[in-house]
Design a protein around this nucleic acid. Structure first.
Length: 506
RNA sequence: GCGGCCGUGGUCCAGCCUGGUCGAAGACUCAGGCCCUCCAAGCCUGUAACGCGGGUUCAAAUCCCGCCGGCCGCACCA
């Protein structure tokens, strides 16, 4: 259903969720703005993520710079591994990854060779353009990191960070002191990451600048246990294992977290725990469980720092299965590299075990923009003429709409009073008196406002008003005095509409 | 980055081939008003567009070139 994506994006643009960036100057691919509603929604996703990782897991949140000096990314391996050696056909001008062409045409792996060596290899082995058979030109680097310099002059090279994680590893010494030696402990960072994609398409799915929320869980490799593992041991997860993918089988294995560890499908208990936590988080965003799976990256797909990676994928109408979270076992790769390059001791002394430990890391790394799109797509519902966003009520950018039934007899005044009072109690409320009442409900539905309160003649007589449910269009009548507490319970799903007041007959 | 197709108000779209009648039409939306006792009703009024930059021509939305952006295919996606 390609249609759905177009409708969702049209709605997102028209109603202020997502816009192409720099539009009046023609736009730049791979960049999108969040409009007023998109920004609220994005912030609510982040807030929900903090509930999981900062409050629930008790992880420490830090905030470090997006601009990183070259040394950091040399140590992390990104300067070397983020560069692709490209080569262009002299005849037809098509560009290819050099190593891919070499592998296809000679079967040999030249990954890691210098540019000169690659050029020699290509000459010797007569690697040609696979499209037109033309001769290949000079090899050039394409670095997927945005490069810049710090201060005047061009000596101090820096890059925009490709992940927020490095900011955490660099601060490890101070962080472990802050954690007072307890293991495992986790540190999170939420912020922008940057990748200079060669050709970004797929809208907000592949961005050059994107928001990520990453957690680095530091643990003793001899003790990879999570204190709350028993809480999730019975939770089921659907795995697409690398050994199946390598053999070309798209076979899902459904197991409990406990079985996944026992059968060694996943590297350890911590990984299993965070797979479950990720599933729970995505469900909280309103993504149906049957549209979530975990795909293990094959050895060739994995990043340079990872020895095991699971991608949480969400099924979408337009893009198929989309990676929204990557869970990587980074081992001690980052800490040992930074220890080596900075010559700092990054081990921890465990007083209870009387030994030094170089921590290993499990990293759940979430994109924020991608799940936001997935949420919109899954929330988008058409029902005859009616179309609405069935967003999780808690996450809807606007929580309540307040309308005067008619624009006379003091109804607008009363409605404004109710609207202001709801705002003063912390509700994201919107007042609307334009057009017919039906049109206003439709406008509210379209942006997923879960409840609409309508002030009518009876309100003026007895102080009651109607609450209308977005998904069913059903209405109940409640006393204005109770409105805030009722709305609060409705929005967080403690009660159903039918339980809070008298149904309104039509 | 390569090739093909494409780019007209907020949205959808007519016009482009065959330059002038385009001072750019229509529908929806939006805003203001009228009307109205609950799900996009009706009426009136209004705002609002040829992606950007060059060129050809007496004359360009229309033809040509470059750029930007989008879609599709290839490549790329640590």
């Amino acid at each position: 259903m390609v249609h759905k994506h177009e409708e969702v994006m049209e709605l997102a643009k028209r109603r202020g969720f997502i816009w192409p960036s720099f539009e009046i100057y023609g736009g730049v691919g791979g960049f999108y703005d969040f409009g007023p509603l998109g920004t609220i929604l994005k912030n609510k996703i982040i807030q929900k993520w903090r509930e999981f990782y900062v409050i629930g897991e008790g992880f420490f949140e830090i905030d470090s710079p997006s601009v990183m000096p070259e040394e950091v990314l040399k140590a992390s391996g990104h300067v070397d591994h983020f560069v692709d050696a490209m080569v262009e056909c002299k005849k037809c001008g098509t560009a290819f990854r050099t190593a891919d062409l070499a592998r296809e045409q000679t079967g040999k792996d030249i990954e890691g060779m210098s540019k000169e060596e690659m050029e020699q290899f290509i000459g010797k082995n007569r690697v040609r353009c696979p499209d037109c058979g033309g001769e290949l030109g000079k090899i050039f680097d394409f670095n997927a990191m945005f490069r810049t310099t710090i201060g005047p002059g061009s000596k101090r090279v820096a890059y925009l960070r490709p992940e927020t994680a490095q900011g955490i590893f660099i601060d490890f010494k101070r962080l472990q002191r802050y954690a007072r030696g307890k293991l495992p402990f986790g540190v999170v960072q939420i912020g922008k990451g940057y990748r200079n994609e060669i050709s970004p398409r797929q809208g907000v799915i592949r961005l050059r600048e994107f928001t990520m929320a990453e957690a680095e869980v530091f643990f003793d490799p001899e003790d990879p246990h999570h204190p709350k593992f028993s809480n999730c041991a019975d939770e089921k997860i659907r795995l697409w294992r690398a050994e199946d993918e390598v053999e070309g089988r798209e076979k899902l294995t459904e197991v409990t977290a406990e079985q996944a560890v026992k059968k060694k499908f996943v590297c350890n208990e911590l990984m299993a725990y965070y797979l479950v936590l990720t599933k729970k988080f995505l469900c909280e965003l309103g993504i149906p469980e049957n549209a979530i799976r975990f795909r293990e990256q094959t050895p060739g797909q994995r990043a340079h720092y990872s020895s095991e990676t699971w991608d949480a994928e969400v099924d979408t109408a337009r893009f198929g299965w989309v990676e929204v979270t990557g869970l990587a076992y980074r081992t001690d790769y980052d800490l040992s590299r930074h220890a080596e390059f900075s010559k700092e001791d990054l081990t921890i002394f465990r007083a209870d075990k009387k030994r030094k430990v170089l921590c290993h890391v499990i990293e759940p790394s979430y994109g924020i923009d991608r799940p936001l799109y997935c949420m919109l797509e899954h929330a988008y519902t058409t029902d005859g003429k009616r179309k609405y966003l069935r967003l999780k009520k808690e996450l809807a950018p606007i929580e309540v709409g307040v309308f005067p039934h008619l624009n006379r007899d003091g109804m607008p005044e009363k409605a404004l009073e109710v609207h202001r009072s709801l705002k003063s109690k912390g509700f994201m409320s919107e007042y609307d008196d334009a057009g017919s009442i039906g049109r206003r409900y439709a406008r509210a539905d379209e942006i997923g406002i879960p409840y609409c309160v309508t002030i009518d003649h009876q309100t003026l007589k007895d102080g009651t008003a109607t609450i209308r449910d977005r998904d069913t269009a059903a209405q109940v009548r409640v006393a204005l005095a109770e409105l805030p507490s009722i709305l609060r319970s409705l929005i967080c799903g403690e009660v159903q509409l039918g339980e809070v007041g008298e149904p309104v007959k039509k």
